[in-house]
Design a protein around this nucleic acid. Sequence first.
DNA 1: CTCTATTTGTACGTATGTATG
DNA 2: TCATACATACGTACAAATAGA
Lengths: 85, 85
Amino acid sequence: MEFPPDVYVWQAVADEIKRRIKAGQYQPRMPIPAERRMAEEFGVAVNTVRRAVAVLREEGVLMTLPAKGTFVAPIVDVEQDPSAD
Amino acid sequence: MEFPPDVYVWQAVADEIKRRIKAGQYQPRMPIPAERRMAEEFGVAVNTVRRAVAVLREEGVLMTLPAKGTFVAPIVDVEQDPSAD
DNA sequence: CTCTATTTGTACGTATGTATG
DNA sequence: TCATACATACGTACAAATAGA
């Protein structure tokens, strides 16, 4: 019986987003998929994606422009792989 | 209906809680009503109360102990009373 | 300028899990 | 065991801002 799960769903989503940034799938200054879009893709609730995005926003990884979208911050301390293009 | 509401519902709730603290209805180190309790009392959703509590928690006004309750912080700047030692 | 589509923000409702008493 | 209380999670609806036809 797990008490606090190893990782919460929103943590897994946040981790996946960061992983994609590292992989170059989501690049700096470029928008990431919409919240509802990712919710469907990951099979989770919109609120869960929103929580993940909120955390990454506070970490400085993402930037959100209301009614425009959420973008990868120009400079992210997340390791980036130039060869992955 | 106003479009950009003067205050959001969660802001109104947070304001009401602080008002009660100022009024002495909720006192330092004492628990405030449960989230669902306040949700029913204010006629709002639980999530809305949670958001209000979360904000007040970050402001240092409230302290939450999981599965125990949410308490008014021992010292709150809401009530500036220098004579209170 | 109007209409529509997209996207985020706010809000409501519900269910489950865990901890406490 | 049961009731209480918070944390997480899922689902839904509407409003506002933006962009494009």
